[in-house]
């Protein structure tokens, strides 16, 4: 074994130089790179954790909003259901009211129609009765019956008040005619002439006319006045009374219906 102390010293120097060089060119850069990588990884981890935390916060926020929306949706649905039920009740009530009103109108209309029908029936019955009576009386009418009516006409002249009689006499001076459906026999003519001259004027000049289409009865006509006793006038009076008793159809009730 040989030991060269110069070599020993030189090797110590070499080793220390190598130590310094490797420390400068190897360990420090490598350790720095490793530390930088570790820092980068740590930063990436921190960032990832921060992002995870942010994502978790977002998830919580989203879940909270979802729950809130679900709750508000439930509230809205409940409110909407209540409103629908309330509106349904209102519409049902309105429908019931309208139905009741329609039913009332229908009843009123029905009653009105029933009354109108009854009145129409009554009127038709009255008219038919009148027509029947009229036809029966026309069938029974003849000159002798009209002669009887001459007496009735004279009796009506007697019943007139003085002023009317005066007016009629004044009108008769310009001409006076007796109109009958059948030609009057001579005795009735004479009786009528005498009676009218007595009541109206002695110079009364009567003109007797007959018209088959005229109403059964005797009619005294002057240019301005007219005095008659006819079957039609009786029946017309009866019809007027009947009409007074039975109002025409579509009267007061119809106006009441329109108002409703």
């Amino acid at each position: 074994m040989q030991l060269d102390w110069f070599t020993v010293a030189a090797q110590i120097g070499n080793f220390l130089l190598l130590l310094w060089l490797l420390k400068r060119f190897l360990y420090r850069p490598i350790l720095a790179a490793m530390a930088a990588r570790q820092q980068r990884v740590a930063a990436a981890l921190t960032e990832a954790q921060a992002k995870a935390a942010a994502a978790e916060a977002l998830q919580h926020d989203y879940l909270a909003r979802q729950q809130e929306q679900t709750a508000s949706r439930e509230t809205w649905l409940t409110q909407a259901r209540e409103e629908v039920v309330a509106q349904r009740q209102i519409w049902l009530a309105q429908a019931r009211t309208e139905a009741e009103e329609a039913r009332g109108r229908w009843r009123t209309e029905l009653q009105r129609e029933q009354q109108e029908y009854r009145r129409t029936l009554q009127r038709e019955a009255g008219q038919r009765l009148l027509a029947l009576v009229r036809r029966a009386l026309h069938d029974l009418a003849n000159a002798e019956l009209e002669a009887q009516m001459a007496s009735a006409l004279l009796a009506r002249l007697h019943a007139l008040d003085g002023e009317t009689r005066q007016t009629l006499a004044q009108a008769a001076r310009d001409g006076c005619a007796i109109l009958t459906a059948f030609p009057l026999p001579e005795p009735q003519r004479r009786t009528l002439t005498d009676g009218l001259q007595q009541f109206l004027s002695p110079e009364l000049n009567l003109d007797f006319r007959s018209d088959p289409t005229a109403s059964f009865g005797i009619t005294l006509t002057t240019p301005s006045q007219r005095l008659a006793w006819t079957l039609d006038s009786y029946l017309d009076g009866f019809a007027a009374e009947l009409q007074a008793l039975i109002p025409p159809a579509g009267g007061d009730n119809a106006s009441a219906y329109d108002q409703a």
Partner: peptide, 14 residues
């Protein structure tokens, strides 16, 4: 160089 006692002595002294 490690086959030299001088080198190993130098390293041991270090």
């Amino acid at each position: 160089p490690t086959g030299s006692l001088s080198t190993t002595t130098a390293l041991a002294l270090c």
